[in-house]
Every structure is written in C-alpha cells, then in structure tokens.
C-alpha cells in the first residue's frame, strides 16, 4: 500500500470566511502577529500501487477531491507502507 496525501486549498483571491473568523479569534487571543489565515483540507488515501498512479490521483483531485472552480490541490505520493 502507498500513502497519498492530498492538500486542498482555496484559490488565491477567493474569500475564506472561516479563515477570517480564525484570524479574528487569534487576534482576541493576543496573537497579533497573525496577518491572515487560509483554511483548507488534508486528505489521506491508502492506495494499491497501480500503473499510472499519479495520473489517477490527478483525476481523483480534479473530479471529486477538489472543486477546481474555487480550489487548488497538491499531493504527495509516499513510500510504500506495509
């Protein structure tokens, strides 16, 4: 099995209402150094080592794991794990 880590983030320029709320909360906790917060998703997949794995992960990201209208994604394909 191989672990694939997918990170989904909002595209630059798309407002992030949750990020704004977290920023405000950090400021009320006196973490004034925080300039901005952007939220996203972390998704971990365990996959069998198939042919074209990278291409298939790419497809999964495009079709389901992210919404390309507002989100970007990156992924890492890890070492085989037992």
């Amino acid at each position: 099995m191989i672990k694939v880590h997918v990170y989904v983030t909002l595209k630059a320029g798309v407002l992030d209402p949750q990020g704004s709320a977290i920023t405000n909360s950090l400021h009320t906790m006196n973490y004034d150094e925080v300039q901005s917060v952007r939220t996203g998703k972390f998704i971990e997949l365990e996959v069998e080592n198939t042919k074209n794995l990278e291409q298939r992960v790419e497809e999964m990201c495009e079709k389901l794991l992210s919404n390309p209208v507002i989100e970007d994604y990156t992924y890492t394909i890890g070492e085989a794990v037992s």
């Binding site: 209402p17 949750q18 919404n67 209208v69 507002i70």
Partner: peptide
C-alpha cells in the same frame, strides 16, 4: 454547480 451544469461554486455564508 458540482455537476458543472451551472457555473460557479458555493462557499460558507460570509458570517458563517
């Protein structure tokens, strides 16, 4: 929107 039958996307309401 998710099916791309219409353009755009939805986000959380601005005041959450």
């Amino acid at each position: 929107l998710e099916a791309r039958l219409l353009p755009g996307a939805m986000q959380r309401n601005k005041d959450l």
